[in-house]
Design a protein around this nucleic acid. Structure first.
Lengths: 257, 257
DNA sequence: GAGGTCACATTGTCCGGACATTGGCCGGAG
DNA sequence: CTCCGGCCAATGTCCGGACAATGTGACCTC
């Protein structure tokens, strides 16, 4: 019950949308999802107009604010562009997902690389000045230190060194071997909010080369990251080193209007 | 005329807001700006509640949707966090600007580095397969090629190699020496929309070392970027190389909820 | 005293309407 | 033929209200 159908661009490929008022999913979200999938499937051709908001609302039995909210969420994602006096059209560029706060583990898994993790160290240690500043704890305070080697197909990809505030969550070495740190934090009820990153490059020292299977002096990609939860608390400080021959950061970014 | 004042957190430091209905600036935007500056100045303490939307609207003489729009824009920026049943509070982390589609020129200028540019090449050339694919033109089609050396304090920082579709804009070598490419494109009426980037590392070849003032084999940071305007057209394809000893990418990213 | 239950506060969702602003189209004037 | 002005379509802004969903805290019961 409570369904309404409609279409846009009545020309060649009429795309149908419908909302279910009995669903607990917000109406604007239902519409946004359907629009997004229609765009990804190509049922909504790139560059095509979306039809004016008022009529679209009328056909769906929704109000204009609700339709606008759905459209706006896709504009924020970069899938649509609004032009006053013209209409709303589908952006026709290869939009990958914009830069997310993703873990290396998820990145590799999404690429079908079957990541594996070897935990090299998992202890507590006094925070040095750098770690203390990043995590917002006193210098010398005990923090959790995790050092991991991330591999794909048995080959090392990166060396990950992370510091976490003590008592933030119960970390099990076995879990660390199984999945990524971010997933463990999320499933512990921590809401990741933002991160500050710095990406650079360096030459491998003898020790780093040994660890990663590269020659001394080989180019390495470095990343330092501090992650905050939604209360502003620093929940993680990481210093990571990637083999440049095996990994590069790829991402899409949008211009904030 | 048409001003209304109010405050939040009537406790110690009453923060005043006011909107000017005679201004052409949207009301929600006025409020958002005032909230943002209050947060940056610390007049709105990190972690403090913002007071409920209905009362805030009433005091300002605005409707709740308008107030919500202002708050929402700051939530999107990562400055505020909403919690249903609780209220809206100020995030208390050092929020720098999130990753923007900025040019190296702007980055350096913002850091007070007084960037200089030396144009090494500025011609047209047939597109090879890689450039043609990135720009969406036919292989062999004529495209504009610009090679620049970016310096600060007389020292090279990066070597920038850019390809642009022919006829996109009139590029003057003199302008390129004066400012960044993105600024020139924007002032030519091009609306930058999104970019796809890949960041990696490599060792300097003899030629690269020569150009950048580094030894052969020195670590370099590489970036490839394709930029699109709001119609989805590729407007620029760049292959850049940075001295790792002088430059690193720093940015903040937000979790998309 | 401990536990659960209920009221309250606050944000989330949604509606229907009104007017302003902008960009393109078309017709008329020069 | 060109240029200018006005009309039209579409999004932008704003209002006032209504009900739902969700944490918090106090109250009540056991």
């Amino acid at each position: 019950m409570g369904k309404r159908d409609t279409e846009v661009t009545g020309a060649e490929s009429p795309v149908q949308f419908s909302v279910d008022r009995s669903s607990p999913v917000p109406l604007y979200f239902q519409l946004a999802q359907q629009l997004e999938s229609a765009i990804e499937n190509g049922r909504l051709a790139p560059g095509s107009l979306l039809g004016n908001e008022i009529e679209l609302a009328g056909r769906l039995g929704l109000s204009r604010p609700t339709v606008r909210q759905a459209i706006q969420s896709l504009v924020d994602k970069g899938l649509l562009v609004r032009r006053r006096g013209i209409g709303t059209q589908v952006v026709h560029s290869q939009v990958r997902r914009p830069l997310e706060l993703s873990s290396l583990y998820d990145d590799l898994e999404a690429a079908g690389q079957k990541p594996a993790t070897r935990v090299l160290r998992h202890t507590t240690t006094p925070a040095d000045a750098e770690v203390a500043a990043a995590l917002g704890v006193a210098e010398g305070a005990e923090v959790v230190l995790v050092e991991r080697l991330r591999l794909t197909h048995g080959e090392p990809v990166a060396h990950l060194r992370n510091h976490l505030p003590a008592g933030l969550l119960r970390l099990e070495t076995a879990d660390l071997e199984e999945t990524g740190l971010y997933r463990l934090m999320r499933s512990a009820g921590i809401t990741l909010h933002s991160a500050r990153q710095a990406v650079g490059a360096k030459s491998a020292t003898a020790e780093e080369g040994e660890r990663l299977g590269e020659a001394e002096g080989a180019p390495l990609l470095t990343m330092q990251r501090t992650t905050f939860d939604d209360t502003g608390r620093a929940v993680e400080f990481g210093t990571h080193v990637y083999r440049a021959s095996r990994y590069a950061f790829e991402f899409q970014l949008l211009v904030r209007p």
